[in-house]
Amino acid sequence: MASISSRRLAKELMEIKNDGCPVGIDLVKADDFSTWWFTIEVMGESLYPNEKFTLQFRFDQQYPISSPAVQFVVTDGREAPVHPHVYSNGHLIALILSCRYVHPFLGNEWSPVLSVVAVCVTLQSMLASCKEKQRPVDNDRYIKHAPENPKKASFPLNA
């Protein structure tokens, strides 16, 4: 029984298979319709030369109406990029899935017409435009109480 979200993800995978990923982005794992991994590298001059990061996407049954949960993988020696918007546990600050780098007119929020690859490109651009390698100022506080799923993060912190 294939849900809309699975079918949509299958099509995104087809597209990746046929057209490949943008430069610096690679699909490393898509065994199922719940968790995918990509690696991203920043091309050209940047604060992250020769660094490769792993990005994890998790999808729920409402994808693409609901955004994927996105974070950097920090297990098995992998590390999150040092960036003012990236916590050391791999979560992105306030979940900036801003796709403005790819779709300037779309602003920073998730839209169901966006794709997994679009998010990868966005985060790649976020790193590429980084001016100073540092963690978010509340990093230590955040990672102590951070929920496992970054999509859960904002509510408790705002409460």
């Binding site: 609901s66 955004s67 918007h85 306030a94 979940l95 900036i96 899935l97 801003s98 403005r100 602003g107 920073n108 929020e109 998730w110 999509k151 859960k152 993060a153 904002s154 509510f155 408790p156």
Partner: peptide, 12 residues
């Protein structure tokens, strides 16, 4: 950025 930060579902 904060303004535009993605709206997340957090009603677990």
């Amino acid at each position: 950025l904060a303004e535009k930060a993605i709206v997340v579902d957090d009603f677990e």
